[in-house]
């Protein structure tokens, strides 16, 4: 079972090696919690009944002055627990050499997906300037996970995160597997409509904006988006994500497991859909 949405911003061993990672955690990602040893991350997975986590960096040098992990740092962290971590890459989507940087991250560093965030990288996903990057990701056969919905980051404006900005990309790249994060809250019904319309769109569950994981996930997946819509129509397109360390993996996993989905659908959400996204499954 896989957590498809984690940020390794508080891993103490990496901050000791690269002190600028703490500045990125505090000032760009914006989190105040204490650093924790890598063991804490792995224990979080263990007590949540999960085997692996996708590690997401974010190339924010152009907009924020420094990145939240470089691709090389993500690869280094994956090497510390290769059986537990799946590393993704990030590039500046507007940089002319972005496609080549992505290809090097995949070919040379073994990274397995691309992370983009329109609110933090300040671009519209449908901008034609980004199309060469999508073409390369599609050619490489890797998934693209794109921030959708509200962001807590200080300078991240909501408008960049509206999921309808994804529609041209979904339409023009039907073979590119795209994950919209955070169930695009508060535009969750809109992203559900997109997922109905475009089978190459996935959504992750890494959403918590008020109350607690149990209550929020119930509100999101039962009231805002009818649970039957997921159970009957979108169960192949929802993946579990926690947004760790903004939310403990254990709490988000418990909330999703208890929301009322069938066991078969939970298996898809926690494992099968992630494997398909990563290209580890033919289904």
């Amino acid at each position: 079972m896989i957590d498809f949405h984690t940020h390794p911003v508080l891993v103490e061993e990496m901050v000791i090696r690269y002190p600028e990672l703490e500045k990125a955690a505090r000032e760009v990602f914006f989190i105040g919690n204490r650093l924790q040893p890598l063991e804490t991350f792995l224990l979080e997975l263990d007590i949540s009944g999960l085997q692996r986590a996708v590690l997401l960096p974010l190339e924010t040098t152009r907009t924020r002055g420094l990145p939240i992990y470089s691709n090389e740092q993500i690869a280094e962290l994956v090497a510390m627990a290769p059986e537990r971590f799946v590393g993704f890459a990030s590039v500046d989507p507007l940089a002319p050499d972005a496609p080549d940087r992505l290809e090097r991250a995949v070919a040379d560093l073994g990274l397995r997906g691309l992370k983009l965030s329109p609110p933090s990288q300040e671009f519209y996903p449908g901008d034609r300037a980004v199309y060469p990057l999508y073409e390369r990701a599609q050619a490489l056969g890797i998934p693209v996970i794109i921030h959708a919905g509200m962001s807590w980051e200080p300078r991240a404006r909501l408008v960049w995160g509206h999921p309808l900005h994804l529609e041209p990309v979904l339409a023009d790249f039907p073979h590119l597997r795209i994950v919209a994060t955070h169930f695009a809250w508060p535009w969750s019904l809109e992203v559900a409509a997109l997922a109905l319309r475009y089978p190459n769109l996935y959504v992750d569950t890494a959403a918590l904006y008020f109350d607690n994981p149990d209550d929020f996930i119930t509100d999101l997946l039962v009231r805002r988006v009818p649970l039957t819509l997921i159970e009957h129509s979108l169960r192949h397109q929802v993946v579990f994500g926690s947004n760790y360390p903004r939310v403990e993996i254990k709490n988000m996993a418990r909330a999703v497991r208890r929301v009322g989905l069938s066991e078969k659908t939970l298996t898809m959400v926690f494992e099968e859909n992630a494997l398909r996204l990563l290209g580890d499954s033919e289904r």
């Binding site: 105040g32 919690n33 008020f210 607690n212 149990d214």
Partner: peptide, 21 residues
């Protein structure tokens, strides 16, 4: 996770960049 009431601490903590729950 009390059944009969909810904690006021369930809110966004700007100094932590996350919700307190």
């Amino acid at each position: 996770r009390p059944q009969e009431y909810a904690y006021y601490h369930n809110r966004y903590l700007d100094f932590d960049g996350r919700l307190g729950f």
